[in-house]
C-alpha cells in the first residue's frame, strides 16, 4: 500500500483540524466563520474522494461498454451540503454584522467583557 494512495484523506484531515483550530482559538468572529468554512470544505472533499472509482471517469454517459464511472451520488450529496454551508455562512456573517452594530466590536473577549458589565 502506497502512502500516496491516501493523499486526499491526509488533506481532508489537515483541513479539518486547521478549520477546527481556527474556530476554537480565534477571537475574531469573522475568522471563526472562515474556520467553519474550511472545516466544512474538508468534509466536502472527503465525500467527493470516497466516490472516486479507480480509473473511473466523470459520470457522464459515454460510448463503449467498458467505461468505468466514478460514483456520482456523493457529489450530488455535497451539492446539498454546499448549499447548507452557504446558508450557515450567510446567517453567521449577518449575525456578526448585528453584533458589530450593537457592541461596536467583533472580538469575542471584548464582547464578553461588555456582556459581563451589563
Amino acid at each position: 500500500m502506497n502512502l500516496l494512495d491516501h493523499f486526499n484523506y491526509y488533506v481532508v484531515i489537515t483541513l479539518m483540524m486547521v478549520g477546527f483550530y481556527i474556530i476554537m482559538a480565534r477571537n475574531n468572529l469573522v475568522k471563526k466563520v472562515i474556520g467553519l468554512n474550511i472545516f466544512q470544505a474538508a468534509v466536502i472533499l472527503m465525500y467527493v474522494t470516497m466516490g472516486r472509482v479507480h480509473d473511473g471517469t466523470a459520470p457522464i454517459l459515454a460510448d463503449g461498454p467498458d467505461v468505468v464511472y466514478s460514483n456520482p451520488l456523493p457529489q450530488v450529496l455535497m451539492l446539498t451540503a454546499i448549499v447548507v454551508g452557504v446558508a450557515t455562512t450567510a446567517l453567521g456573517l449577518a449575525l456578526v454584522v448585528r453584533i458589530q452594530e450593537n457592541y461596536g466590536t467583533i472580538e469575542e473577549d471584548e464582547i464578553r467583557a461588555l456582556e459581563d458589565a451589563s
Partner: peptide, 24 residues
C-alpha cells in the same frame, strides 16, 4: 436584547460543528 445576537452566534458555531460531525 443585544445578547440575543451573541447567543445565536455561539449557537450557530456549535450547531454547525455538531451538524458537520453527523455528516462526517
Amino acid at each position: 436584547s443585544r445578547n440575543g445576537f451573541t447567543a445565536a452566534y455561539r449557537y450557530l458555531i456549535m450547531g454547525a460543528i455538531g451538524g458537520t460531525f453527523i455528516l462526517i
